[in-house]
Design a binder for these strands. Structure first.
Lengths: 216, 216
DNA sequence: CCTTCCGGTCGTACTAAGTACGGCGTACTT
DNA sequence: AAGTACGCCGTACTTAGTACGACCGGAAGG
């Protein structure tokens, strides 16, 4: 059409555009039309590369899984799982819209399957009996996803914390929720507080507990 | 219109209908039109009771919070938190669509605030210094929500497990994911396996770890 | 070089959903 | 009996997913 040659559309470019849209505007902004616009293309063109919007979600979730580092194989199970947990959290922080979908795809992609396989391998190689490996995986991922969910939901960042907290606490009668107020004043509003720091406490507690439950 | 007198519409009836719709058809089925139909009323009638669809979500999430038992005050912190965790999980199992929204409301309702206040009270009364109370709350809720998210996402139930697993494993070349296959065959497909049982392992591990970190 | 064919893009249009605007009936007040 | 206010709804506009089939440009074959 114009003189500038257009990159040909591919599933990869489509998914990248979809992720860019979701990163910018949240999952609600992810529409067939917005992705098409991001790509400089008309909506119906996407349907030659994906079956429908569901397939786009499937695709971008697998891309997100691919961004998470696999547990390194050259260290013990504990540092390996620690590394993978921090990587997962960093990725979910970059793509906060993704968390609710990570485990909900009925057609997991190859990166997803490879990831799960590698984590199970780490556990088994680390000496976890199969049952304990299942417990450990469930616990770790529940924590990681749950934490990502909470972090994504926080209405404040360390920067705007004071303002949003003030507006927040005007909404309700403080006397009715004394412990909430105590926690806000004595903890959240103290200098240096950052919810992100909570992640390591839970992760280390969980890894401690798993180590303690390892046989032999 | 007809002879049968119609119940007057209220926010409470509206929220109850919305929850019924979501429980039946998932969050995607929750539309202004479907809620109106559930109530035997026309769509625009709802707008006399709520500002918009967001306000309906706000409302039903507060109702869901209200269904969760507060930690009982007449027992120690550990059984109290255990009780509240199981109650939360049971509620989120009943309303699986709710999990991603539980912490994402920028206008939490009274049941939500009361709930958070009561949990903090339990921790503080149990001897948790304020910082540890924050750690504990973040960890517990991350785990509970994360677990609920995973449980809601599982494509199988104990009943249909074998069939869905079989269909599932045909989708990919088994040799590429040996640990996934091992886990499926040696664990998930064994009689008596129920993902729901994983909840207690993690919860007890977390409560153990918290107890261990309590001062004095 | 021209024709044929095909993969990929797009125009049109239908359906579902959120919701703005204003009408209208019923029941209670005075 | 007339006014009034509240709550219900008819209509219609906008955005979104997507079915259907047309169109176009380059590759393949004569």
């Amino acid at each position: 059409m114009t003189g500038t040659q257009r990159e040909p559309l591919t599933r990869e470019r489509l998914f990248a555009a979809a992720i860019a849209v979701a990163d910018t505007g949240g999952i609600a902004a992810l529409t067939i039309r917005s992705v098409a616009a991001e790509l400089g293309v008309k909506p119906m063109s996407l349907y030659h590369h994906v079956a429908n919007k569901e397939a786009i979600i499937d695709g971008i979730i697998d891309v997100v899984f691919g961004e998470i580092d696999l547990p390194p194989e050259d260290v013990g199970w504990r540092p390996a799982l620690n590394h993978r947990a921090h990587s997962a959290r960093a990725v979910l922080r970059r793509h906060p819209w993704a968390t609710p979908f990570m485990e909900s795809r009925s057609r997991p992609g190859p990166a997803t399957l490879r990831h799960h396989d590698a984590v199970l391998a780490t556990l088994r190689r680390g000496g976890f009996p199969i049952e304990l490996a299942g417990h450990a995986y469930s616990l770790l991922d529940s924590y990681i996803y749950g934490f990502a969910l909470e972090e994504a939901a926080l209405p404040f960042t360390p920067q705007n914390l004071n303002q949003s907290m003030a507006g927040f606490m005007e909404q309700f009668p403080a006397e009715e929720y004394p412990h909430l107020v105590e926690f806000a004043v004595q903890r959240v509003l103290q200098p240096g507080y950052d919810y992100a720091d909570e992640f390591d406490f839970g992760l280390e507690l969980i890894l401690d507990g798993l180590e303690r439950r390892l046989p032999g």
